[in-house]
Design a protein around this nucleic acid. Structure first.
Lengths: 374, 374
DNA sequence: AAATGCATTAATCAACATGATTGATTTATT
DNA sequence: AATAAATCAATCATGTTGATTAATGCATTT
C-alpha cells in the first residue's frame, strides 16, 4: 500500500487516471480506456495488470453479444483501499469509514450545542479505536489515511470557540495513527466529494456552493479541485456582496442557514426531520440568498470563465431546490455584458457531502490525477 | 523551427521550463538549473546541449573567482526565435516584431477614431509585408507565429463596430502566412506579458487588472495564465459591482478610461503626452475606480485565494500610481472576515503591455511550460 | 440447417525509443 | 586537499510500434 505518493508502491499518474476514470464512469473494458486516455493498448494492458495485481481493480464477467472478441470490464475493487473521514460541524461531529468504491461502511455521529475540542477529540479517538478494532489486520493495512473537514478558523465563530485557537487538530489526531492525516475547509471537501463520488457529467470547470450553518464552497478548474496558496480557495462565504435588506456585506450574512435561523429566532436541527420553517419565511430567505448567490456566481464567471454552478447544502432537498430556483431567477436580473450566465444545478450528496469529502481527502491524495484530462 | 508543439523540432516540457526560467531570472549556469528544477545534473547537461544546438541558448563568459570549477552562465539567444504581435485598440492599432529575449525589434502604429476592419486589415497586411521584407531568409524562418490582442466582441462597442461581427480576424490574417496565428483578449495578453517579460518576483497566483478605454484583466493560477473554456477568463470588466454614484453595475462602468472621459466630456489621446485631466476630476474618478477595483479584488481573493493584485493600464505612470493607492485605501474598508486582503502593486509594462502580450502568444504556445513549477 | 470464410474487436507479445536516473570520473578553481 | 561544475557510461522507467493471438457475429456456401 502506498505510504507516500512518491514512495514504493505509489501509483503513477496514468495509473491514478485509470482509477479515476473507472470511479467516475463505472466499469469499462481496457479498450474503452485506450479511447479515453491518450495511450496505446499495450500500455493499458501493462498498467491494468499492475493495478489488478495490487488489488485495486477487479475483472468483471466478459461481455459477449457484440462483434469481435468479447470484452472484460474492469471495476474498482471495493476493498482496494479504505479511507476515514471526520467532519466537525456547528451541531454535528461525524466519523465515517469509506471504501474504495465510495460506499460508507461505518458511520457514527454525535450532536453538540457547539463543538468543543476536548469532546470532539474524545469522540474522534474513541470512534477511531472502535472502528479499527472491528477490522481485520488485512483491512487495517488497507487504510490509507484520515481526512478532516472543518470550517476555517473555528475560533472566529465566537468566544465559546476560542479553545480551538491553540489546537493543531491535524497534528493531535495524527499522533499514534499509522497513516497520514489531511485537513481541509469543509466547503472544499463538499466540492471534492461531488467531484470524486458525485454525478459523472460535470464539466472541467465549475463552482460548488454549500449552504450549511455558514456558506462555503469549492472551485474546480481544469478538472482539479483548487486549494490555493493558503488552502483557502472557494471561500465563497467571504465574498463581498452589496448589502440590501437585513444582514452584512458578505455572502454568508445572507445565504446561510444561520441567516435563516436569525429570521425564525431559533436554531434548526442537524437533520431534515425537524425542519419546520414557515413557508413564507423560507421563501423570503431564499429570495435574498438567491440574489446574493447570483451576484457571487457572476463574479466567478467573469473572473475564471466557467459554465456551471452546483448548489448543495445541509438542508432538505425541497429547500435546496428552492434556493437553486431563486438563484436562477436572480441570475436573469444580473448585468451580463461580456459574459454568459452560468447554468445552475443541484448537487447530489446533500448532508453527506462534507463527511464523504473528508474521507475523499486521502483518496484524492493517493489515487486522483492532479491536472486531469478526463 | 517548431511548426507544432508536438511536431518534429518541438521542445519538451523540461526544455521549455529551462527557457522560461532563464527568461524570468536571467542567465544562469547549469548548476543553478539543477537546483531550480527537479532534475539530475546529467539531464540538464543533455537538455541544454540540445537547446544550444537548436540555437535557443548561448553560453556566456565563464565566471571565475569562486571555489570549484568555474561556471558558464547560459543566456537566451536573442535570435533564437522571433514573434509578431498585432494589437487592436479603441484608438490605436499596433504591430511589433519581438525577439527571443523580449526586445521589440520593430514597431509601427496607426491612430484611428474607431477601428474599422478594412483599415486595420490593410494596416496589418502592409505592415507585415514591410517587416518581413527587411528580414533575411534565415530570420524569416525563425518567426514562429503572430499573436493578436483585441477586445472581445468588438461589435458590442456600438453600431459603428458592427462590421467586425462577420469577420474571422484570425482566419483572415492566417491566410497566406507561413506561421500560426493566435488571438486572445487584450486584457489577457497584458497579463501574459507581465508573466513572461515582466518582473521576476511575481507569485504563482495573482490577478492582473488593466485599465484602458475599457477595463480588462487576466488571472494567473499555479503559475499558468488561465484562459477558461470559452477563452474569456479574466473578464474583470464584466464583474458585477454595487453601483454607487454615476455609472452602471459592472466594473468597466466605473474603473476605465472611458468612465474618466465621460467625466471630462472629451476623449483622451492614445499616449501620455496629451493627458491633461484636471487633478480634482482625476482624484474623484480614481476614488470611485479604486472602490470598484477593491470590491472585485476581494471577490477574487475569496474565490480562488491569491495574495496579489497587479494593476497596470494605458495611462500615465502617475495616474496608475494614483489608482493603485486609491485601491489600497478602498481595500481597508472592505469586509474581510475569513480571508486576507491582497497586496497591490503596479505593473511594469504600461502602454506596451498589450502589444508585448500579443507577441507573447506564439512565444507562450511554443516555449512556455504549461502548468509551471517555477 | 450446418459449415465455412472473413471482417471486427479485444488484448497481448516482442522489440525498441525516449527521457530520465545513478555512480564514477574529469576539470578547474580556492 | 576540499569544493564545485560538468560530463561519461551504464541503466531504469515508461511509453511506443508492429506483428500476433483470440473470440466473436455475420454473410455466404454447402
Amino acid at each position: 500500500m502506498p505510504l507516500d505518493r512518491d514512495g514504493p508502491g505509489a501509483l503513477s499518474r496514468n495509473e491514478r487516471l485509470i482509477l479515476s476514470l473507472i470511479r467516475k464512469r463505472g466499469p469499462m473494458p481496457r479498450a474503452a480506456l485506450v479511447q479515453l486516455m491518450d495511450l496505446s493498448a499495450q500500455s493499458i494492458t501493462n498498467l491494468t495488470r499492475k493495478l489488478m495485481q495490487a488489488g485495486y481493480l477487479d475483472a468483471g464477467a466478459v461481455v459477449r453479444g457484440k462483434v469481435g472478441q468479447p470484452s472484460t470490464p474492469l471495476a474498482l475493487a471495493p476493498d482496494g483501499a479504505l479511507f476515514l473521514g471526520l467532519k466537525i460541524g456547528r451541531r454535528l461531529a461525524e466519523l465515517a469509514l469509506v471504501d474504495f468504491a465510495g460506499r460508507v461502511r461505518v458511520h457514527r455521529q454525535e450532536v453538540h450545542s457547539h463543538p468543543r475540542p476536548d469532546r470532539v477529540m474524545a469522540f474522534a479517538r474513541q470512534g477511531l479505536e472502535t472502528m479499527l478494532a472491528t477490522l481485520s489486520p488485512a483491512e487495517r493495512a488497507r487504510i490509507t489515511g484520515l481526512g478532516i473537514a472543518a470550517p476555517y478558523r473555528l475560533w472566529d465563530w465566537g468566544h465559546e470557540m476560542s479553545d480551538w485557537l491553540n489546537l493543531d487538530l491535524r497534528y493531535e489526531l495524527a499522533r499514534g495513527l499509522p497513516f497520514p492525516v489531511f485537513l481541509d475547509n469543509d466547503g472544499t471537501t463538499a466540492c471534492g466529494a461531488e467531484l470524486i463520488f458525485g454525478r459523472n457529467d460535470l464539466p472541467r470547470d465549475f463552482i460548488h456552493i454549500y449552504i450549511a450553518h455558514f456558506a462555503g464552497g469549492g472551485i474546480v478548474l481544469d478538472g482539479a479541485l483548487r486549494h490555493g496558496p493558503t488552502r483557502n480557495a472557494g471561500a465563497l462565504g467571504s465574498m463581498p456582496i452589496p448589502s440590501v435588506g437585513p444582514g452584512g456585506g458578505q455572502l454568508l450574512d445572507q445565504a446561510s442557514v444561520s441567516a435563516l435561523e436569525a429570521r425564525i429566532g431559533r436554531s434548526l436541527p442537524p437533520d431534515d426531520s425537524g425542519w419546520d420553517v414557515p413557508p413564507a419565511v423560507e421563501a423570503d430567505w431564499a429570495d435574498q440568498a438567491g440574489r446574493a448567490l447570483a451576484f457571487a456566481a457572476m463574479s466567478a464567471v467573469a473572473l475564471v470563465d466557467l459554465p456551471l454552478v452546483v448548489i448543495d447544502g445541509a438542508v432538505p432537498p425541497a429547500t435546496r431546490a428552492r434556493l437553486a430556483q431563486a438563484m436562477r431567477d436572480a441570475l436573469q436580473a444580473m448585468p451580463a455584458a461580456g459574459i454568459d450566465r452560468p447554468q445552475v444545478i443541484e448537487g447530489t450528496l446533500g448532508r453527506s457531502a462534507r463527511i464523504l469529502g473528508a474521507a475523499g481527502l486521502p483518496l484524492s491524495h493517493f489515487f486522483q490525477p492532479d491536472g486531469a484530462l478526463d
